Amino acid sequence: MIHILVVDDHPAVREGTKAILEAEPSVQVECLNPPYTVEEMKKFDFAPFDVILMDLNLGEINGMELSSTILSLHPTSKVILYTGYDVEDYFEEALQLGILGAVSKTESKEKLLDYIRHVINGEIVIPFQYFKGLLDERKPNPIEAEGYDQVFNEREKAILHEVEKGLTNQEIADHLHLSKRSIEYSLTSIFTKLDVSSRTEAVLIAKAKGIIE
């Protein structure tokens, strides 16, 4: 038997969620009625519940704050944000507070129960877009992954050496037997790779990273 506590300040939502979930024979639901204060939370016994479904907007207090209070009093409680808003907007903050995820009120009974079972098992179901964002943040900079020396070709290194001497683009072009336009294109590429906006910065960073000596 799964014991679920629903925390929502709208009676219709509380009773509706209870009715939907209890259509599953193995589920028992209880609703926590207002007021949602620290004093009331201290009086309430959360131990019997496998999962707490927590609404985001609860009048004078929001679900994040209330969840934080509950988890400070009962660290083993498993809380899921249960909201009509875009859950991805709150997922990161929820996890940082110790909430084990967020699920939309628009999900079907089957998906909601599946989510609850994962949380009971100590798992977190992460929305795809949120997870993709995490992966994108962890992708290494191509320069860092390959090494600076491998990312810059010999022409770019030669140009950096000439830039260090204080030569103009035309002087560099004449010295390397290239067109002025080629030098300009190469400098743009160098600036992008080094994430700099000036010739001085480019030389300083290139020397610091060992691209040029």
Rank of each mutant, 00 (worst) to 15 (best):
Ile52Lys: 01
Leu56Asn: 11
Asp149Gly: 09
Ile4Val: 14
Ile4Phe: 04
Asn141Cys: 12
Gly147Thr: 06
Glu156Asp: 11
Ile70Arg: 02
Ile70Cys: 09
Thr76Leu: 11
Ile211Met: 08
Glu137Gln: 15
Ile183Leu: 07
Asp174Ile: 00
Thr188Pro: 00
Tyr90Lys: 06
Pro25Lys: 10
Lys109Arg: 15
Tyr85Asn: 12
Ala145Glu: 15
His3Gly: 00
Leu95Ile: 11
Tyr115Lys: 10
Lys193Val: 01
Ile212Val: 13
Lys180Ser: 04
Glu39Tyr: 07
Lys180Thr: 09
Tyr148Val: 08
Leu204Tyr: 13
Glu15Trp: 03
Leu5His: 02
Thr188Val: 01
Leu56Thr: 03
Gly210Asp: 10
Leu167Gln: 14
Glu184Asn: 11
Pro48Gln: 05
His177Gln: 14
Glu154Val: 12
Leu66Ser: 10
Ala47Gly: 02
Tyr130Thr: 06
Val13Lys: 00
Ala145Trp: 13
Ile20Ser: 06
Val51Tyr: 06
Asn57Cys: 01
Lys42Ala: 10
Asp86Tyr: 04
Lys139Gln: 13
Gln96Trp: 05
Ile183Glu: 08
Tyr85Ser: 14
Gln150Pro: 00
Thr17Lys: 01
Gly84Cys: 05
His161Phe: 11
Val38Ala: 14
His118Gly: 00
Thr17Trp: 01
Glu162Lys: 13
Ile120Asn: 04
Thr17Ser: 05
His74Gln: 12
Thr192His: 14
Gly59Cys: 03
Glu92Asn: 08
Ile80Val: 12
Asp114Glu: 15
His177Pro: 02
Asp149Ser: 14
Ser26Cys: 06
Asp174Ala: 09
Val38His: 12
Arg181Glu: 13
Ala102Ser: 11
Leu95Lys: 08
Tyr148Glu: 13
Met41Asn: 09
Glu88Arg: 13
Val51Gln: 04
Tyr115Ala: 00
